[in-house]
Design a protein around this nucleic acid. Structure first.
Lengths: 150, 150
DNA sequence: TATTGTTATACTCTATAACTATA
DNA sequence: TATAGTTATAGAGTATAACAATA
């Protein structure tokens, strides 16, 4: 019966695992853990965001977030200011050093990734993007519990 | 330049994150951590394998593997016997209880997943599978460092 | 000499829940 | 009452490296 998708999930997991192996090298190379790398990558090329939003974009719960951000702050990679419209909330963004790290590391991840896709042409990308976008749409349609205070 | 793939990677990561959120619920529901769940899922429906092979199929390094397996053994979910052909190596497999857990939990993951793909028809699956298989092929083509003794 | 798995260390992440301050 | 983030706790995962037994 409808279990054909198992193969797809396995493939998806294997692809992701492959990328994680690759990006994990970059993370460790610049002294970041997986979670820290995740935060830097999420904050990169954005004006910044709150803990809450960061928690939604990553799989890091709020209790953990405090510690992860603390360590990134100690490394001088992120800075936080109290949000002006909601005084309970922080506004988080990369520092200059954080941006430098992002600008230095991310292109290397990009270059590594680009090598992976060296043989892809526009049609291949069209297909990959639309297929994945479709998959993401059906996943997002499933109601998911709030990750931040289960 | 060739950075079009970034969108694909982001999509891939978001899909995987969605699945991890879903499967994470099942894992916690049966008292397993992500790593433990990973092992059970990897051992399920196989005759068993060595630590080394498990390490290759998951992203768990050998130093960690000892501890993870230890806890699963304490829970009575896996059992190990010395390999007969290589006496340094263990042969690991699910116990009856481990198989029961796998048989009980995995179908629920399957059912949850099936709900995600309710609207997919054969053509959709064809497309998804071949797209992902192609992606996996290019990822696997990249030389990756040995995860087990970096 | 190389490989399989163990042990040890130090740190980080995780789930959970009770808590403070603000909304 | 609800929400944003903090703190505390106990357990688990992580990288790393030195080590034993076997190949």
């Amino acid at each position: 019966m409808g279990e054909r998708y198992l193969k797809s999930i396995r493939l998806l997991a294997e692809c992701m695992q492959g990328f994680e192996r690759l990006s994990g090298q970059h993370a460790r190379a610049c002294g970041l853990t997986h979670a820290q790398f995740d935060i830097i990558a999420t904050l990169g090329n954005t004006p910044g965001m709150s803990y809450k939003e960061l928690g939604e974009r990553t799989l890091i719960t709020k209790g953990t977030m405090t510690g992860v951000i603390e360590r990134l702050e100690q490394k001088g990679l992120v800075e936080r200011t109290r949000s002006s419209d909601d005084k309970r909330s922080w506004f988080l963004r990369l520092t200059k050093a954080g941006e430098r790290l992002f600008d230095e590391v991310f292109p290397r991840v990009v270059a590594g990734g680009a090598a992976v896709f060296a043989q892809y042409d526009d049609a291949d990308f069209d297909r990959l993007e639309s297929t994945l976008a479709g998959l993401k749409a059906v996943i997002d349609a499933v109601p998911q519990p709030d990750n931040n205070h289960r």
